[in-house]
Structure formats: C-alpha cells, structure tokens
C-alpha cells in the first residue's frame, strides 16, 4: 500500500532538502507530519504529539545522512515507530496486556472507544498492530522495523488482536 499520497513529491523534497534547500525541508515537514502522526498517535496515545515531535526531530536531524531518498518512507516509518515506543515507555504507560485486564461484558469501560482498548496494550503491542493493520506490512517486515524476531512480532500481534476480540465481542 502507498504510505502517503504524493510519494514522489516527498522523495523529491527529501532530495532537495538534503541538498541544503530549507524551503524544501519546510515543505517536507508539512508532507511528513500527518504520516508520522498516523504511526505515532496509535502507539503513544495521549503522548502522540510528543512522540510525533520527537520522531520529526530525529528524522530531520538524520536527513542529511539518508543515503537513498527513494527509501524515505520506510526509513521514516522505522524512526517513527522507535520514537513512539520510546516516548510511550518513558511516559510509564507501558501496561502489559493481560487478557484479564480487558473489560468484561457490562463493564462501563467497554463503552469507551477503541483508544481504551489500545491503552491496555503495551507500546510494543500497539506498534505491531500499527505496522500490520495500519501500515499493511507483513510479519517479517514488521519484525524488522521493530528489531525483534519474526516469532515475537507474530505472538505480539496474536495477543494484541485477541485482546481486541475479547474486548469487542465478549
């Protein structure tokens, strides 16, 4: 799936920004912010804006070292996931998902939105959900972005999805 509309434009802007044009850098910031927010917010939840800012700072600081502008989106995605998980953990919201923690039928919290269920997962579980179900990566690619073995990504995904199922269909 195409990560963002105007992918070619993003790559051209990244090339011009690397060459020293700060207006291209400015337009690249406009272009990448929604893409990075789409990754960071579901992982870092309430700290989504902080995670988005820190991911953007990391991307722009490292931009001149980006060797292949064609690889822009994969590179940005990896930074965004890493920063979102780091910010979420730092914020001490890393409550591991225990199926028993998921609201039972009749629990008033069950009426809360999807964010409530997301909040019960650890940042690492949210990251694998975002990569698989929002970004459309396969398990191997998601594991590579997260820097974990494919088996770990698979078990996190299974656990995250089963938490959702239990929350929504119990």
């Amino acid at each position: 799936m195409s990560p963002v509309a105007g992918e070619d434009r993003g790559i051209a802007l990244a090339r011009a920004a690397r060459a020293g044009n700060t207006l291209a850098m400015h337009d690249l910031l406009d272009h990448l912010t929604p893409y990075i927010a789409r990754i960071c917010v579901p992982i870092a939840l309430a700290d989504g804006p902080d995670a988005t800012q820190e991911a953007l700072v990391a991307v722009f600081r490292a931009l001149r070292g980006l060797r292949e502008p064609e690889a822009l989106y994969g590179w940005v995605r990896a930074i965004a996931v890493r920063e979102a998980v780091r910010v979420a953990r730092r914020a001490a919201r890393a409550v591991p998902a225990e199926l028993a923690d998921v609201p039972e039928r009749g629990d008033p919290q069950l009426a809360a939105d999807i964010g409530d269920v997301l909040a019960r997962l650890s940042p690492g579980h949210r990251a694998v959900l975002v990569l698989r179900d929002v970004e459309g990566l396969d398990e191997e690619a998601a594991a590579a972005v997260l820097g974990v073995p494919a088996g770990t990504a698979k078990s996190r995904l299974h656990r995250a999805r089963s938490s959702f199922r239990k929350a929504w269909f119990s």
């Binding site: 406009d30 912010t33 929604p34 989504g48 988005t52």
Partner: peptide
C-alpha cells in the same frame, strides 16, 4: 498538519 504546534515545528526545522 494538526499534530504539533508551530513552536514544536520550529524545533524540528532547527534540528535539520
């Protein structure tokens, strides 16, 4: 882009 305010954007630009 709604995700961060203008001062945060300036910090990002300065990082680049």
């Amino acid at each position: 882009a709604a995700a961060i305010d203008t001062v945060a954007r300036l910090r990002v630009m300065a990082a680049g």
